[in-house]
């Protein structure tokens, strides 16, 4: 952040004058995604390091229900305690896996936490109140989808195959690390996670910026009044704009009069779970095949939820 501020301070305003409008939009949009996400990514990395280094071994696992479904449900509610959006949850979920949580349980946390974190709930309420069941559909729909994803992937015969080789190696290093010298280990862990996350964040932000420049929002908005297209268009928009779950309700509020409520619910449920920036961040941890499977599953669930809301409200 300081580097960005320093660059802005030292750079004359005319430095972007040579750029074309689309190029300037690309830079602006990409940097806005980075600036918006950066605090949460760092917060997530800090929390991840604390969970791994400072919590006694097995502290979290011992306190969770032993029944898998109940345990996943409990984990899906942990987001209430963490005002961190989806990009911050990626390092935290990595930390949870490193500290012994199953891959499926971590997925449940990863996809539920950004939706039921307190800031997200408050901003969604502020934006929509109880109108058209948007808030309730978002919370309940998000929890159900996250638990379903957790359940399905808990049936995977070799969960470690869901993870990238690099991350598996990182887990192995962490398991072998000595349990003393916590401060040094915290810094090392912070450094390692930052190195893994930052390139992914920059790539994800760049892709998000590029797609937003390339795909006209007007095209998406034009589709908003159709029960089917409103859902698909807003899911596409959520995937493209890669906006934080903490503020996405206010973003989509401006489309509220154009789009049907089901489209808005699909946007608010799908976006925090899957978008271009998240995929880039998740790619540090999960294999491409896993991400494709998860994305399709979540997309189908979110679309079904959105269509159901459109039918009922």
């Amino acid at each position: 952040m300081l580097v960005l501020l320093g660059i802005r301070y030292l750079t004359p305003a005319s430095v972007t004058e040579w750029m074309t409008d689309p190029a300037r939009d690309f830079v602006t949009l990409s940097i806005s995604v980075i600036i918006e996400s950066l605090p949460f990514v760092f917060l997530g990395i800090v929390l991840s390091s604390l969970v791994q280094v400072w919590l006694p071994e097995g502290f979290l696992l011992r306190r969770l229900p032993r029944n898998p479904a109940l345990r996943r449900f409990t984990i899906s509610l942990l987001g209430v305690l963490l005002p961190v959006c989806e990009c911050g949850n990626v390092p935290l979920a990595r930390g949870l896996i490193m500290s012994g949580l199953t891959v499926a349980d971590s997925m449940t946390f990863l996809f539920a936490a950004p939706i039921i974190n307190p800031i997200t709930i408050v901003t969604t309420y502020q934006a929509f109140g109880w109108n058209d069941g948007i808030l309730v559909s978002r919370i309940i729909g998000g929890l159900l989808i996250a638990n379903l994803v957790g359940f399905i992937f808990s049936r995977h015969p070799s969960p470690e195959k869901l993870l990238t080789t690099g991350f598996q190696e990182a887990c192995a290093i962490d398991e072998a690390a000595p349990r003393n010298r916590r401060v040094r280990r915290t810094f090392l862990q912070f450094s390692r996670e930052t190195s893994a996350m930052m390139p992914a964040l920059f790539i994800g932000a760049g892709i998000a910026g590029f797609i937003q420049v390339a795909v006209s929002r007007n095209v998406l908005v034009a589709l908003g009044s159709n029960p089917l297209w409103s859902v698909l268009a807003l899911m596409t928009l959520a995937f493209v704009v890669a906006i934080c779950s903490n503020v996405d309700a206010f973003f989509i509020l401006s489309f509220g009069s154009t789009f049907l409520p089901g489209g808005i619910v699909a946007f608010l449920v799908f976006g925090p779970m899957i978008d271009v920036k998240m995929l880039a961040l998740l790619r540090t941890t999960f294999t491409a095949k896993t991400l494709v499977q998860v994305s399709i599953l979540i997309a189908m669930c979110a679309a079904t939820l959105g269509l159901a809301v459109n039918y009922v409200f």
Partner: peptide, 25 residues
Amino acid sequence: MSTDADLTGPPRAAPSSRAFRRLLY
């Protein structure tokens, strides 16, 4: 990193790849 079986005590039959794919798809 652990599995459900690690956390639920008594081991049960490990799910097969085919069963997982059937469930997912």
